[in-house]
């Protein structure tokens, strides 16, 4: 069973739909025992960082998430709140990845919205993926590249398209909305 973390961030259903299409059952939950017993945990997210962190903290999920041992995937806002801090609402985050999240400088249209390719990719999520493949992004904040960055995308500045530390994976793009390329990446995660 795949657990999708329930918190006050929108598109939980798209992730669940994507898992269904790939043949995986999932539950949406914020209950600790279900999260701990899941084979994989996914933290999707669109929304606002400060209120998302507050929701997690109020339920003690910040501590639970950091202690999980199974493969864990944060998506979009999920990636950002796995970093050290974010400029969005000046929020301290989960500090799994050693990166700060900043707002894009205004030298381009914000949000970064649409399909973009990679400057570099590495690690198990990107098996079978070419750097010229495109994935779908929609975000106004980005994680600076750091030592846990596993893929880099460039929009105005180079930023972390994906990150990994131990069992913790994260993508700034939405694999569940990235067509067949996204399905390969999600499948790579689900097969870990």
């Amino acid at each position: 069973m795949i657990a999708i973390i329930k918190y006050n961030a929108g598109n939980v259903r798209s992730v669940q739909n994507a898992l269904n299409r790939l043949g995986y059952e999932s539950i949406v939950t914020d209950r600790e025992p279900l999260l701990r017993n899941a084979q994989k945990v996914i933290m999707p997210g669109v929304g606002e960082a400060a209120s998302a962190m507050k929701y997690l903290k109020n339920r003690g999920l910040d501590v639970v998430i950091k202690s999980l041992k199974q493969p864990f995937l944060g998506i979009c806002l999920g990636l950002q709140i796995m970093c050290r801090s974010t400029e969005e609402g000046n929020t301290l985050c989960l500090n799994i990845f050693d990166a700060r999240v900043k707002r894009f400088p205004p030298q381009g249209r914000i949000p970064h919205m649409g399909w973009n390719d990679f400057e570099s990719i590495s690690g198990p999520l990107f098996e079978g993926i070419d750097i010229r493949d495109n994935v779908y992004y929609v975000h106004s904040f980005y994680a600076e590249p750091c030592r846990q960055t596993s893929a880099v995308c460039r929009y105005i500045v180079p930023f972390s398209a994906a990150m990994q530390k131990d069992n913790f994976f994260a993508t700034q793009f939405h694999p569940e909305k990235s067509g067949s390329t996204g399905e390969i990446i999600l499948n790579n995660f689900l097969r870990l």
């Binding site: 798209s14 299409r21 779908y136 929609v138 909305k177 996204g182």
Partner: peptide, 8 residues
């Protein structure tokens, strides 16, 4: 639609 579509 959402059940079948993997693009935004």
């Amino acid at each position: 639609i959402a059940a079948r579509i993997s693009i935004p």
